[in-house]
Design a protein around this nucleic acid. Sequence first.
DNA 1: TATTGTATACGAAACACTTCGTACTATAAT
DNA 2: ATTATAGTACGAAGTGTTTCGTATACAATA
Lengths: 130, 130
Amino acid sequence: MVNEIRPTDGELEILQILWKNGPSTVREVNDLLNNVQDKSTGYTTTLKIMQIMFEKGLLHRDDAQRTHIYTPAVREGKIQSALLDRFLNAAYKGSASKLALQLLGNHKTTPDELAAIKALIDQLEKNKPS
Amino acid sequence: MVNEIRPTDGELEILQILWKNGPSTVREVNDLLNNVQDKSTGYTTTLKIMQIMFEKGLLHRDDAQRTHIYTPAVREGKIQSALLDRFLNAAYKGSASKLALQLLGNHKTTPDELAAIKALIDQLEKNKPS
DNA sequence: TATTGTATACGAAACACTTCGTACTATAAT
DNA sequence: ATTATAGTACGAAGTGTTTCGTATACAATA
C-alpha cells in the first residue's frame, strides 16, 4: 500500500540524496548531509538510520563488498505523491485548490513555471469539460 | 517564529475541529473525533493532547467554568503556510511548480477551482513581467 | 446526605525517531 | 606482523507523541 509509506524527515533527507546522487555509501551520504547541508550528523547516526530504512524496505543495499552500497527502493515521484496526499488531507482537508492557491501566492515562481502550470490547467479543462 | 510551529498530526486534527467549529470543550472535540471521523480516541487522551497544546501555546483556554473552553491560538492560514513551507522543502526541495504540477495532475479539481487558479496565475504574470 | 456522573490533573507505559558509544571486523599502511 | 584506519552491528539513552489508568473535585439528583 502506498499509504504505508511514511518516511520521517530524516529519512526523506537521505532519500533526496540518494535520488539525486544515485547508489551511495553511508560515508558519501553522511558527507553530503554535513557539507552540502548545515546538519552535523555523526557517522553512526546516519548509518543507523540507513540500516533502519533498509529494514523498513525503504532502501536496497548491496553488501557484496565490505562497504555497502545503498539505493532507494522507491521512486521519488511515488513517495512525493503519497506524502502530498497525506499532507493535503492533514492540512487542507483535501482541498487541492486551496493548497494550490496558497502555494502560488506564497512562493516565487518563475514565468516558465507559471506557464507550465497554466498549460496543464488548459489541458485538464479540455479533457474534462463539465 | 513561524518556523517553530510544528503541530503533530493528532494536534492538527484537533485544530481543524476548532477552526471549523469555534470554541469547544474537550468533550465536544472528542465526540467529533470519534463520530465524524473514524478515530476512536479515549476522552482522557484527547484531554491530554489539548492540555499539551495549551502548554505549547497552540490553544488558548477559558477556565472560568469547571468545563474549560478551548480556542485555537493560531490562524488556520498561518499554520497552513508554515506547514506548506516545511513540506515543500522536505519533499520537493523547494520546487513549488513541481508540487503544483503533481497536485493538479493527481487530484480531481473542479472547473471553478481550476479557473480560480488560472486567474491567480494571470495576476501573478501581470505583476511580475519578466 | 449519599451516590452517581462528569470534569481536570497527573503519572506512567508504549512506541518511534534520533543520537551516540562501543565492540567487532576487514582492509590498508608501516 | 603489527598497527592504524574505516567500515558494520548493536545496544541503550534521550526525546516527543499518544494512550490510558487513576486520583481528585465539583455538580446534580435520589
